[in-house]
Structures are given as structure tokens and as C-alpha cells.
Design a protein around this nucleic acid. Structure first.
Length: 490
RNA sequence: GGUCCCAUCGACUAAUGGUUAGGUCACCACCCUUUCAAGGUGGCGGUACGGGUUCGAAUCCCGUUGGGACUACCA
């Protein structure tokens, strides 16, 4: 049987980084086995729906290179792929269960349920639906049940969980899991608003859509016994389960906002490469061997297997993501400079800097080893796009008595430099430094301060060579004028 | 509280009964060097604890401790 897997997010906001990893593992598994990857939208809770979510999920997946084979927009033979368009199917199946005697009607109000829970807590027992004392099909009797239904009383349908015995299932990642039935609650399957709960919709859809492997986050592990019971109740064969370890905050709680960005779109906005983010999260909880770190998407597909997924949660460590992004940055500088130029151009234009592709490319080559993400280039080397600004602290910390003389001579040297390249510049300045008995680094630093207004940056000779003779000389003269004013006032 | 899951350096992980417990990030030092990086070399640092099983345990079993998830007419 060919593999069919699904990623089934709720449209309650932007796609989460944890969701992206779940989608990725499903996608890798599907592609590795030449199977199908399905996107299903689980919007059965109308109150939590956030407009634009579906678009963000699709856009984020596409950005990451994960394209569904079937989805609300890609179509497919098992649609519709949006649960709110399948309510009739769920109602039908819920009634089917009632007819089979494996589910029943319940008429309790939220207030009644709340009181029940409080009683149970006060008595020191675990909160659970008490089938024998609440208002349902069994306590009310068939006649009263029918009367209430006909009268239109709000009703839910609950799963009739056996009082004894145990539920057992195999998880590909965790092995056999056994839970006593008495610890499984009579889960609501159909809400009084006629919509299904996650549990019903999920099981019905996975069955109807021919899903072979349910690969999802570990947070679903505790409710899997309910799902297994549901498959039994329908008389269906259940798919194989694989519960993925959670992505964690640095404090080892479930990855969440508060500790940093969790939306994929945040990472897109910060200029991370999809290759880097995908590579990074693929290795959070899975590893094909011990040593290799860098994998492109097709290599991940080739190497992926659920058997090598870890059980323990993994902390999302931005520092390593940054390192990985820098690795890809270096790679792309060699392999695909135009892509980098196109990537950074909007960021530059936002600052009002319109320069040629060729110039941008040269700046990227110049500074790329000093940054992790392309947009960092703007904060790292704004002086490549606009003149530097100096302030008093800066002046005090750099100025020495012979600085003016040295810069004056450098300016003249630069004005007449032929040919115009970094190596020649380095040689001539080196000679000048020797003539003055001054270490090269003194002049290098002085030039850096004058030309860039900063203490750190890319190689100074390369920077000057790229800035050009006119611009460099202009900045040096400005600097000299500015410093002489400072000295006069001092 | 109850149920379930988990446990190798600070982080991500390798080692599926036999290794001086390996690699990557981070951190530290040194080299390189016009600054900062990048790169190179080296270093710091770990099998949570206690019992078993075994000639031999990070690995298998039990317990303890710790962490997490779940415990809704949310997913």
C-alpha cells in the first residue's frame, strides 16, 4: 500500500515553527516513500478561526519548499480538504456510532459539567465524565432521549468508552503504549453546535482520506487511545502512529512565544534562508548519522526515516540556526550571488538605498563572512551605502596628535593611486607606515574610523577599493575638516 | 492531583552489550591578521541517581529523582 500522510493544522494564526517541523517530517516521509503529502485544514472550532491563517500556512510551507500533493487549493480525490465543509460527513458518522451502540447522546449543560468536575475535585478523584450520574441517553432512557432530541434540546454525542480492559497501540517512535480504559474519558465527538470535535473529525478524515501514517506532535499522545477506540468503534483499521518529540524553549517547556519568535513568517522576515531553517529543524529530533550537519531538502528526503526519530524533546537553539544560516550564506555567495542580491535589495530600498546589482553583489562578497543573516549587512556596513557620521565620543577615542598628518598623506596617496585595487593600496600604505615608523594597523584603524565611522568592519583596503577613489577621498576630507574643528574648539 | 511520555557535555546529537563515550553549536586559548569575522589547531564539558542481569551496561530490567505533555462542547 502506498504511503499517504497529512499535515492537519488549525487556522488559528501564523504557522508555528513546530508546525513546520511536523509538516516537514510528514513531507520527508511521503517523498522518501514516493507517497502523497496532504494538507488538511482543521477548522472545526469556529470561535478560534483567524482570517488569513490558511494563506499564511500555505505561503510558509511553499517558502520552505514543502508543496502539498492534495489540499484545499491543490485539490485531490479525497476532498473537500477543509473540515468545515465536511460537517455532514461527521454528523453522519457520529449517528452511525450511536446506532452501533458505541456512542450516545448527552444533554448536560456546561454549567452542569463544571459542577461535576468541582464535585470530583473536592472528592479527590480525577475529573472525568460520569456516565452513570449525568443527563444522557442511558440515565434518561430512550423515550426521554428521543423527546429531548425532537424538542431540539442541545445535545452532544459522546464516545462510549468501555469501563474495563485496556487500549493498546504501537507507536513507531515510542513502541507499544498501553492505557487502562478507565483512564480514558467519554470524549465528546459531536458538539451541541453540530460541529465535530478534533477527535471525531480527525479519525473520520484520516480513514476516509486513506491516511496510512499519522505523524504528529507528542502532545497528541495522551488522546491517541481515544482515537484508537474510535477506529475500533467504527470497525476500521487504524493507521500507524508516530508521535514526534516536542520542540522546546530554552527552559524545556513546549516551544512558545515569550521566549522569541515562533512564527515561520518571523524567520522569513529576518532573512533566514529556507534551506537553513529546514535543515536546522530537520535535525531537531532526527539524525541520519552523527557527524554531518548540512543537508539540502533532497538529501533529507533520501536519508529520512521515522525509526531514527528521537524520543526526547529538543531545545530550539537560535545560535546554532544562525551558524547554519551563515554556512548557507557562504555557500550561496559562491553558487548563487544573484539570488542574494535579489534577497537583500528590498531591505536596502526600504532604507532608500538604490544601488546597482553589481555593487550590492560586491558588498555581499565583502562582508558576508561577518554576518549570519543577509539583512544584518545593513547594520553591519551601512557606510557602504551612505556616508558615516561621527560623534564626540568617537572623536575623543580616536584622535592622536599625528593623526591629521597621517590621514592627509593617505588622502594624497589615495588620490593618486594607480592602479586602483586593494593590493596596490595595501602596498603603498604599508610603505607610508614604514616611512613614519608607525605600525600598519595604526593607519588601518585611522582610515577605518575616518571612512566608515566604525571600529570594526571588513578588510579596510577592500572596503576602500569597493567604495571608490572619489567617495573615499571625499570622506577623508570631510573627516579632516571635522577633526580640525574639534581640535580648534578643544 | 491523575494518566502518559521522556532522560548522553550548557544546546543539538552519535555510539542499538565490548569506543580512551565521537561530532556540531556555544564558550575558552592559541595561530592567522589592518579591526571584526571567517578559517585552522587545541581545550573545557556528559551517560541524573540507586539497585539488578551480564565476563562486560550509556545501551537490557526494576526503583528513585527530575523534566515535559495531556487532563475543554480547543486543536
Amino acid at each position: 500500500m502506498s504511503v499517504r500522510v497529512r499535515f492537519a493544522p488549525s487556522p488559528t494564526g501564523f504557522l508555528h515553527i513546530g508546525g513546520l517541523r511536523t509538516a516537514l517530517y510528514n513531507y520527508l516521509f511521503a517523498r522518501h516513500h514516493s507517497g502523497r503529502f496532504i494538507l488538511r485544514i482543521e477548522d472545526t472550532d469556529q470561535t478560534r478561526y483567524v482570517p488569513g491563517s490558511v494563506e499564511d500556512i500555505l505561503a510558509s510551507l511553499r517558502w520552505a519548499g514543502i508543496e502539498p500533493d492534495e489540499s484545499p487549493v491543490h485539490g485531490g480525490n479525497y476532498g473537500p480538504y477543509t473540515q468545515s465543509e465536511r460537517t455532514d460527513i461527521y454528523r453522519h458518522h457520529a449517528r452511525l456510532l450511536v446506532e452501533r451502540g458505541t456512542a450516545y447522546y448527552a444533554f448536560d449543560t456546561p454549567e452542569e459539567l463544571e459542577r461535576m468536575r468541582q464535585r470530583q475535585q473536592a472528592a479527590g478523584i480525577a475529573p472525568h465524565y460520569d456516565r452513570s450520574s449525568m443527563r444522557n441517553q442511558y440515565t434518561l432512557g430512550e423515550e426521554e432521549t428521543q423527546r429531548l432530541l425532537v424538542a431540539g434540546s442541545p445535545a452532544t454525542i459522546r464516545l462510549k468508552v468501555p469501563l474495563h480492559g485496556e487500549v493498546k497501540f504501537d507507536d513507531i517512535i515510542r513502541g507499544t503504549i498501553v492505557v487502562p480504559c478507565k483512564d480514558v474519558d467519554d470524549q465528546i465527538l459531536l458538539k451541541s453546535d453540530g460541529f465535530p470535535t478534533y477527535h471525531l473529525a480527525n479519525v473520520v478524515d484520516d480513514h476516509l482520506m486513506g491516511i496510512t501514517h499519522v505523524i504528529r506532535g507528542e502532545e497528541w499522545l495522551p488522546s491517541t487511545p481515544k482515537h484508537v477506540l474510535l477506529y475500533h468503534a467504527f470497525g476500521w483499521e487504524s493507521p500507524l502512529f508516530a508521535h514526534l518529540p516536542l520542540l522546546l524553549n530554552p527552559d524545556r517547556s513546549k516551544l512558545s512565544k515569550r521566549h522569541g519568535d515562533v512564527a515561520v513568517r518571523d524567520y522569513i522576515a529576518k532573512g533566514y534562508f529556507p534551506e537553513a531553517l529546514v535543515n536546522f529543524i530537520a535535525l531537531l529530533g532526527w539524525n541520519p548519522d552523527g557527524d554531518r550537519e548540512l543537508y539540502m531538502l533532497d538529501e533529507l528526503i533520501e536519508a529520512f526515516s521515522l525509526e531514527r526519530v528521537n524520543k526526547a524533546g529538543a531545545v530550539f537553539d537560535i545560535a546554532k540556526l544562525d551558524w547554519m544560516n551563515a554556512q548557507y550564506l557562504k555557500q550561496f555567495v559562491v553558487r548563487d550571488l544573484p539570488r542574494l542580491v535579489a534577497h537583500i535589495r528590498p531591505f536596502l530600498e526600504e532604507r532608500g538605498w538604490n544601488v546597482s546589482d553589481d555593487y550590492i553583489a560586491r558588498v555581499i562578497v565583502l562582508v558576508h563572512e561577518r554576518i549570519h543573516r543577509l539583512p544584518e549587512l545593513i547594520d553591519f556596513a551601512p557606510y557602504m551605502f551612505s556616508p558615516p557620521e561621527y560623534d564626540d565620543d568617537f572623536f575623543r577615542s580616536v584622535w592622536t596628535d599625528d593623526a591629521a598628518q597621517l590621514i592627509e598623506e593617505c588622502t594624497q596617496l589615495i588620490e593618486s593611486l594607480e592602479p586602483w585595487d586593494a593590493e596596490t593600496l595595501h602596498n603603498r600604505i604599508s610603505t607610508l607606515a614604514q616611512a613614519h615608523g608607525v605600525p600598519f594597523r595604526i593607519i588601518g584603524t585611522l582610515l577605518r574610523l575616518a571612512v566608515t565611522g566604525r571600529r570594526v568592519g571588513a578588510g579596510m583596503m577592500d572596503t576602500i577599493a569597493l567604495l571608490g577613489k572619489d567617495e573615499t577621498v571625499r570622506r577623508l576630507r570631510t573627516f579632516l575638516r571635522w577633526t580640525s574643528e574639534r581640535v580648534a574648539h578643544a
